[in-house]
Write a protein that binds this DNA or RNA. Sequence first.
RNA 1: GGUCUGGUGGCCGAGGGGUUAGGCAAAGGUCUGCAAAACCUUGUACAGCGGUUCGAAUCCGCUCCAGACCUCCA
Length: 497
Amino acid sequence: MQTERYTEQELFLYNCLSREKERFEPMNAPHVGMYVCGPTVYSNVHLGNVRSFLSFDIVFRYLTYLGYKVRYVRNITDVGHLTGDTDDGEDKIGKKARLENLEPMEVVQKYTNDFHDVMRVFNILPPSIEPTATGHIIEQIEMIKKILDNGYAYEANGSVYFDVTRYSKDYDYGKLSGRKIEELMSNTRELDGQDEKRNSLDFALWKNADPSHLMRWPSPWGMGFPGWHLECSVMSTKYLGDQFDIHGGGMDLKFPHHECEIAQNKGANGKEPVKYWMHGNMLTVNGRKMAKSEGNGFTPEELITGNHKLLNKGYSPMTVRFFMLQGHYASTLDFSNEALQAAEKGLAKLMNAYARLGELKPGDASQLDVDAWRQRCFDAMNDDFNTPILISVLFEGVKVTNSMLAGQQSMNAHDLELFRSTFSDFVGQVLGLHLEAEASDGNNELLDGVMQLVIELRANAKANKDWTTADKIRDELAALQVQIKDAKEGSTWEHHA
RNA sequence: GGUCUGGUGGCCGAGGGGUUAGGCAAAGGUCUGCAAAACCUUGUACAGCGGUUCGAAUCCGCUCCAGACCUCCA
């Protein structure tokens, strides 16, 4: 009934720009514009990438749950940017195309499909708009023209570079990442092939490309391709306007990518583009950042099957999702077998209660203050999307649910309705956790029937005090990873994959 | 080298000047034919050294350790 929950909840989020937690006030409530940097599709996504998109999935879900009308834009980077740090480096997608003997756009399609599959498996919602860089070459050229007209860029040999020194006379370059331009100047390494740049800090808006480059487009400056940072400025502006509410991305994009984005936007239209900047932290393995270049990333397939040297078993997508949500998005999270196993059990406990909410019957008095408990769920999320706290509050709900199922606690009808809807909303809609299908897909009906029979036979044996038969059934099932749970009203069973 | 972040009990991970995080694991109890499950109870903690304070895990300084960014990376 109450869908405009934002009118009664106060959301605070940590703004990287101000380095403070701020009250979230959208520019045009109930509309919210959110942009998140998406993947570069030249290889399979790994779990570190997944964590980042999951973090913003939570933001998207919670804002939506609060009743905001969110336009969520997440791009696909399908222009191959340079592999190395020199200008003559090969571009990633072109390189992959040569290695796999594919057309560059085949590479792009292949890994875009993979990305979408992975997002679906982890129950990460699709964005409202998913624009591609190659689909916005014209707009990128237009933005470069504006920046040139405003004097913040210069052309050199068919390439166009952003003039950071010139820009920093009018604006604060380094504001987001807390860097000082003088320090950046003195610290930047001397790299080869940068003769065209007036200053090592300058970055490319457009790169001249010879015919050996597979991905190139005509422009006023000749054949070439757009610079690394430009697409995000262009596509966020196009779909969300010159100024919008939230911009997200991984911590590793803060500098230089996001800093350059701000510079491009301001250089083009003079306005501060983003009100709230949010950065998700890294997933680590043995304390080190999971990254393609480190070679310590797991693909989702390896994770689910357990087929990786660092994994001693497979874990379901929901286990991984839950594991990640037990940490706060702004903290690093270390990936380990022990932590995954703990998460697996914790999730089973949570989801078991979630699945049995329907069995709860209203009683007389309520021992739980349901209104206060519900508000604590909101409070957790209102405090910079603190999913670990939310989960801890939900576990209190698990205890209450189990106690009620065991007849040790009660709840009146009004409270029970609120309790159920709150519990299932926060688990399902906000955290995006769902029950995972049993391993025996398609045979569930048959299996259920067979198990009912087995449980009945065992109940008969128990009634006859035939403990040998009863225990044999229980133990043999246990060997098949099927656990029998006895309760006063009868037995239930559970299959552990 | 520069900039920044973090070091919490057996493990993961919140919090963050005085009051229980939570999950997993461990111990005891209730229930049970015995178990399992569930519920109840319990323990061990804030890297080290100084300082501020009536009081610090929480603030400040130093030390040690780890990580991130400074180059493509979520």
